[in-house]
Simulated assay, not measured.
Amino acid sequence: MEHKLDKFFGHIRNFNVSHYVWINETKDLPIFQTVHSMKKVGDLKDYQKQVARVLAIKQAKKKKYYYLEVEGEELGWAELINSRVVYSKPKEHVKIDLQKFLDLQDKQIFVVSKNNLRLLKDQMLDSRFVMIKDGVEYEALFKKHQLQGWFSSDSLMRSEKVNIPVRGYKDGFTIYEFNNLTSEVKIDEEKIHPIKIVHMFRDIGLAKIKTGMGNYWTDMSFLEYDETAIPEYAPPYNFEETVVYDLIQNISEERKMTLELVERLNSQFKNMDVQVEPADTSEVQDEVPKEQTQPIDHDIRKKLELEREKREKIERKYNNLKNSFLGKLQTKYWEMRK
């Protein structure tokens, strides 16, 4: 999968940081419970065109396998061939510029039918992920947590947060419930003030206003305000800054998961009333030398044997835990903290 990805994947691979991928495979690939048993637990095609999180990477039989999670559900291990690394970004409200989209139609990526495009153009969508494909920057747009498609960044209009007081309004001023200017709301002249512009799409003159009646959408051309108060447009993040944001988020999430794991394991061992670290058995061995010079009482011998068995059992549990996937993860975490 690496050769198809952008330059930042090298850092992800070298530091083994959890990350996101857009599942886009041409073959029907299986999902395995482990990379050793190869017990099939599902099919990757059931999650085609979805964004998944990679929690770990392992190599087995000269292939790389990725441990996947989708919407909080851990799926298992799967090989990824065509899927691409994508980066989470701070959520941003956007609208599709239909004309720009049509002009750039040859480089657009769809998850939903193209017939739904005209429905989407009037919607305010959430931009939550970004990726690079063939040198083009794409953003994943969501509506009510459902992925609607990948659109090139230059075909989107972006909402900007502002705080601009409105002095008054012109004849024809109307307010609406929705950003596509539908569901008109009757204006109460006594309650409408004060008015502030809190969000705006400057390219199309669309504004979200905060009023004494509540928050509504309107056409900015009917508002009276100080136009010099509108700041110059500056993109909130470039691609490199988005990648850094994504890595910080993922590392923070990994740390949270590790701490939860440590707390859970600690709680389990407390309930089991056993020691995590293997105890030193030299004292017991010293008490029972190989060559006995004096006979030992039968009861004492029995107690010593039970004690030895108990310590060996604890040591086996410790080694099994230490060599498990979660144990290795925790050991690696401790080494990084040194």
Rank of each mutant, 00 (worst) to 15 (best):
Glu283Ala: 11
Glu283Lys: 13
Glu283His: 14
Glu283Trp: 12
Val284Ile: 15
Val284Gln: 11
Gln285Lys: 15
Gln285His: 15
Gln285Asp: 15
Asp286Trp: 13
Asp286His: 14
Val288His: 06
Val288Met: 11
Val288Glu: 13
Val288Arg: 03
Val288Trp: 04
Pro289Thr: 11
Pro289Ile: 12
Pro289Ser: 10
Pro289Glu: 12
Lys290Ala: 11
Lys290Glu: 13
Lys290Asn: 12
Lys290Gln: 12
Glu291Asp: 11
Glu291Pro: 03
Glu291Val: 12
Glu291Arg: 09
Glu291His: 11
Glu291Gly: 09
Thr293Glu: 10
Thr293Phe: 09
Thr293Ile: 11
Thr293Ala: 08
Thr293Tyr: 09
Thr293Gln: 10
Gln294Asn: 06
Gln294Leu: 02
Gln294Pro: 05
Gln294His: 07
Pro295Phe: 07
Pro295Leu: 02
Pro295Tyr: 05
Ile296His: 02
Ile296Phe: 05
Ile296Tyr: 06
Asp297Arg: 03
Asp297Ser: 00
His298Pro: 02
His298Glu: 10
His298Lys: 11
His298Cys: 00
Asp299Met: 07
Asp299Gly: 07
Asp299His: 09
Asp299Ile: 10
Ile300Lys: 09
Arg301Tyr: 11
Arg301Gly: 06
Arg301Ala: 11
Lys302Ala: 14
Lys302Asn: 15
Lys303Arg: 15
Lys303Gln: 15
Lys303Met: 14
Lys303Pro: 08
Leu304Cys: 03
Leu304Val: 07
Leu304Gly: 01
Leu304Pro: 03
Glu305Ile: 05
Glu305Ala: 08
Glu305Asp: 12
Glu305Val: 05
Leu306Asp: 15
Leu306Gly: 08
Leu306Ile: 13
Glu307His: 06
Arg308Pro: 01
Arg308Thr: 10
Arg308Asn: 04
Glu309Ala: 04
Glu309Thr: 07
Glu309Lys: 02
Glu309His: 08
Lys310Asn: 06
Lys310Phe: 10
Lys310Gly: 01
Lys310Cys: 05
Lys310Ala: 05
Arg311Ala: 04
Arg311Met: 14
Arg311Thr: 04
Glu312Asp: 11
Glu312Met: 07
Glu312His: 06
Lys313Gly: 03
Lys313Ser: 12
Lys313Phe: 08
Ile314Met: 05
Ile314Val: 03
Ile314Glu: 12
Ile314Ala: 01
Glu315Thr: 09
Glu315Gly: 00
Glu315Tyr: 03
Glu315Pro: 01
Glu315Arg: 09
Arg316Ser: 05
Arg316Trp: 04
Arg316Gln: 11
Arg316Gly: 02
Lys317Ala: 03
Lys317Ser: 00
Tyr318Asp: 02
Tyr318His: 10
Asn319Gly: 02
Asn319Ala: 01
Asn319His: 01
Asn319Met: 00
Asn319Val: 04
Leu321Thr: 06
Leu321Ile: 09
Leu321Met: 13
Leu321Tyr: 07
Leu321Pro: 04
Leu321Phe: 14
Leu321Lys: 04
Leu321Ala: 08
Lys322Ile: 04
Lys322Trp: 04
Lys322Asp: 01
Lys322Pro: 00
Asn323Leu: 09
Asn323Gln: 15
Asn323Pro: 06
Asn323His: 15
Asn323Tyr: 13
Asn323Cys: 09
Asn323Ala: 12
Phe325Gln: 14
Phe325Ala: 10
Phe325Asn: 13
Phe325Lys: 12
Leu326Pro: 02
Gly327Asp: 02
Gly327Ile: 04
